[in-house]
């Protein structure tokens, strides 16, 4: 039964991804561009959801890994003629290595302290990149390679999403998910059950950082010009965190729903500069207040309520106290 559903889910995901590859044929250029942004945000959101939703690591250091990925991609492509897919893997790898290097210090921190620590990490990296001369300081780098077509970017993003889906599913639909959640729920109790909490957290952190790095690389490939304020900016961190919270933290498809909403909102609101981004703030507050499990959580609740078998004549049947 469970196996059959899992199979159905896998089929559905394959169908969706395959369907996405056809998007450029049907939608115009605009659809493809929105699609690209959506895919990048979904990958970032899923990575962050793995950390925060499954492993309890509420990180505010997202931008660090996006920035690292971006600089690696531009640096590598400018230095050598390397295929883009390999460069993207490189972006992810370097981000993952950085994650590995900082993890001993970061994982000493629990809860809020971890959150604040990752925030400091992101800021320190940004400040470093602004001052460092090898990376062009605040001026950043330009990509010398020819710029890719929108469709090509879109296909790379689909590839990235497919990879992310496989990796994250491998984490959240398998035995590993139980270990992840045990660390999230009570790290001390988990270690007393023999769980190598450090390794579990490290695995999640490295996987998430890899995906963030690769996504950052792809974004840099699209932009063609990168600098620390844009690539290491808090905006990434906040966007990713908002989209997961809006979609539904800890729900497998929360980031997907969240990314759709955040992108849609951003697109609509950018047309009304008078309203500025204040509306984003209002929406965030309202969603956090009234949909604690995000829009997806709200939707699932609604669906459950709609489909729940309700007694036709409850008054006669029920003696249960209210």
């Amino acid at each position: 039964m469970a196996g059959a559903s899992r199979f159905a889910a896998a089929v559905a995901i394959v169908v969706v991804i395959a369907g996405l590859t056809l998007l450029p044929q049907f939608s115009g250029e605009y659809g493809v561009q929105i699609g690209f942004r959506l895919l990048i945000y979904i990958v970032l959101g899923e990575a962050w959801n793995l950390l925060a939703g499954y492993c309890g690591l509420v990180s505010l250091g997202t931008s660090s890994f996006i920035g690292i990925g971006a600089y690696v991609l531009v640096g590598v492509l400018n230095a050598a003629d390397v295929p883009i897919s390999i460069t993207l893997v490189g972006s992810g790898l370097v981000a993952a290595i950085v994650a590995f290097v900082v993890s001993p210090a970061l994982f000493r921190l629990r809860g809020l302290y971890f959150t604040v620590g990752t925030l400091a990490l992101g800021e320190a990296l940004r400040l470093f990149m602004i001052n460092a001369s090898f990376s062009g300081g605040a001026g950043g780098w330009f990509l010398n390679a020819p710029s890719p077509s929108t469709n090509a970017l879109f296909y790379y993003a689909i590839g990235l999403l497919a990879a992310a889906t496989i990796v994250i599913s491998a984490c959240t639909q398998t035995r590993f998910s139980i270990l992840l959640r045990s660390v999230r729920d009570d790290e001390d109790a988990a270690t007393q059950m023999g769980v190598r909490a450090f390794h579990v957290k490290l695995a999640a952190f490295i996987i998430a950082s890899f995906l963030m790095g690769a996504a950052g690389g792809l974004q840099a490939y699209k932009l063609g010009a990168i600098e620390p304020y844009g690539m290491f900016g808090m905006q990434w961190t906040i966007d990713v965190l908002s989209l997961v919270i809006i979609g539904g933290l800890g729900l497998r498809l929360g980031p997907v729903v969240g990314a759709i909403i955040v992108i849609a909102l951003g697109e609509y609101l950018a047309d009304y500069p008078e309203l500025h981004i204040a509306i984003t703030g209002v929406i965030l507050i309202v969603i956090v207040r009234f949909a604690p499990k995000g829009i997806l959580g709200l939707g699932l609740q609604l669906a459950r309520w709609l489909t729940a078998p309700r007694p036709a004549s409850g008054a006669l049947r029920s003696g249960a106290p209210r």
């Binding site: 559903s5 159905a8 889910a9 497998r252 498809l253 997907v256 699932l300």
Partner: peptide, 11 residues
């Protein structure tokens, strides 16, 4: 998983 599938399609 079934609901995931549904939600994926919906999304």
């Amino acid at each position: 998983p079934r609901r995931l599938a549904k939600a994926a399609l919906f999304g």
